[in-house]
Design a protein around this nucleic acid. Structure first.
Lengths: 216, 216, 216, 216
DNA sequence: GATGAATGAGCGTTCATTCAT
DNA sequence: TATGAATGAACGCTCATTCAT
């Protein structure tokens, strides 16, 4: 027959969001399995049992972390679409820079790595994430690309492959930030990196004759 | 008398590699923590105790998986360097296509995802992997880029940032293959993707006036 | 003006009894350990914390349930003794029928099963129950038996063993009602059963020669 | 990463039966919920994990305890039926005495109390027990009773009610032994009790005139 | 070498108990 | 008086690790 002891601290504002924030940070850092509920609770400043007032299980907490992380991404995308300029180059630049500013550089930036790591163990959740975040994000990019092609500004590249090629460096950077960056040298400046990505992707590696002429 | 009676007894020296192969596949699919030694043993067709004849612990097995995966990568890189043509474009193309052919499309292609997922839990190993694989790979790419710049074929882009931008789409594809590809639609053809990447990176998105002239 | 507008506020002094009633039902159904305080509170229509306004602990609640269940039993026994006819057969019949009517067929009928199940975990309480209920009940029965023996109506059977034999079928029926009856067929009609018990116990299984003569 | 410690004792003969025996004793003493797997393991001289080599869960262990306890009961019944004399009185006496000798006085004698206590939590198992043990046992008794009635030795009592009345005192004694007997005085001698039961049930409480004549 | 029964530390989960409101 | 959010000790169950065979 348990516990006659009991100091007590009331923490009325232990919102579910604080719990998912703590969980996100630890899941990203150590992975789902290797993260102990004790640690999550401690990081959120509550006791282990409190987690179960808000989530049915560790798995439910994980799903909440992902599901919750999806909303800001969608909203960011929709805001960008709404504010879209006519100029495809500007639009593209806005997309990529904003993704980093609103997602990649925040704790949400750990979600791609997390979801990637656990896709094999939570296929249904991965499917949901794919539909709601990935596919939708690519659709936005494809729109921008297509607009550029239609205006004769972009070459007629495959929009599906190209949209993937456009996000890959950003996701890669976010993944890096939440993995090797923690222990390995060679830190990359994110903004310079994103700028370089945009520049490379717009103009390519190779020297252009027309531009050479300008310089001459 | 014996016609095609296949290899009967496994050579003993092949045993550790069978174990690491099984471990790699499962670690990539489910993560290090979520993979049980039982499963690895079962997949390799041995009993659980046998693992301990070859590896001191689960962690040692993990390190062997990574360490072993490093060698082919280095060797591939060195072979490429040795076979390097003078033409930087060809060299770059060879690098990227070969990485996919020799690493990305094989079971080794799961290592980047695995190492990324577990970098937080095995920082020393991550550091080793970074030094021996990542940094060295980037050095190779930087060499190719620099050669192109020196020959006036490539623009004078930052070689550090650019080399990262060049690998990112390949790593991204490998990661995708070992995560979402298992449960989500929209399969990408790897070869077309790599080709599109090379094309995009060489020529950029935007229409070139000089090329337009060619078409006229 | 108020016609049949039912009792609105429960009288406060009735609250503890509502709690023990809910607890008794659940303890009997599921056992002490397997019953959660949540369930008891829910069944009584109060919150979990309210239980602690009336009982110090789950164990205290259990003791109250038993202790409270003891009183009606004693009172029933004393009433029977007071109303005792001289006729030992009538007295015996009254005892057994009344026990079923006042105890066995009411929620109190679950107490023997409950106390039996938990005697090992609450020996002090079991001792109390034994002294106050069981021993006293047997004493009443022994009195009736002895009276019959003294009057030459009953055979000179061992009063201690016989009193146990007389209650056993009643307790057995009550136990059955609160265990197998909930899930198994073959329902027994309690009144017929008690009648059969009295008949069997009075006359025995075997055919009597003197009675045979009556039939001839 | 766990356990570098490890003393080891091989106990090859830790049969499932030893585990169920330990579990039975503790389940009977303390109830299913209140019994810790640690205790069961300790009593059987194994570690907690060993239980899971033989049983999937605590509940599975419980079911095995009951299921296993059923077999000796059935076998005992069948042996009795096979050895049945023609004399119904002898047959009845054999039934009751043998039940006590083979079941009631052994550890199996705790099963009725255990099954009764947990019937509410394991209705399917209770149903199984009812069908395979209780109903079958009653059928045996009804056969003996009917035979007596047919031979004109027993009165024409309701066989269903009567068979229940015949077992009730035995089950009651077994229950008592595993509950109050552990903490309360007034120990009953089982053999004298069973004898008294048989005597009471055969001849009844009341004095018989024909027998009185014998004594005169 | 190879096995798999046995171990026990550790984790997810439950729930009796407390207390600020 | 009544509530229910918060607590944390305890338990069922897992699984990396060991070792007699």
């Amino acid at each position: 027959m348990p516990a006659k002891t009991a100091p007590r601290r009331r923490r009325k504002e232990a919102r579910p969001q604080e719990l998912t924030a703590a969980a996100l940070a630890l899941f990203v850092e150590k992975g789902f399995s290797a993260t102990r509920l004790d640690e999550i609770a401690a990081r959120a400043g509550v006791s282990k049992g409190t987690l179960y007032l808000y989530f049915d299980s560790k798995e439910a907490l994980f799903k909440a972390v992902i599901t919750e992380g999806v909303v800001p991404t969608i909203e960011a995308g929709e805001a960008l679409l709404a504010a879209s300029a006519d100029d495809p180059v500007t639009l593209l630049r806005t997309f990529l820079l904003s993704w980093w500013a609103l997602i990649g550089s925040t704790p949400l930036g750990g979600i791609p790595k997390l979801m990637m790591s656990e896709a094999g163990n939570f296929p249904a959740l991965a499917r949901y994430y794919d539909e709601v975040v990935i596919q939708r994000g690519h659709a936005l990019l494809r729109t921008a690309i297509q607009r550029g092609v239609d205006q004769g500004i972009f070459r007629a590249l495959d929009p599906v492959l190209t949209s993937t090629l456009l996000v890959a460096p950003l996701v890669h950077l976010a993944n890096w930030k939440h993995s090797f960056a923690g222990c390995c040298g060679g830190n990359i400046d994110p903004l310079a990196y994103v700028d370089a990505h945009i520049d490379l992707v717009l103009h390519g590696l190779t020297v252009r004759h027309d531009e050479q002429e300008k310089h001459s």
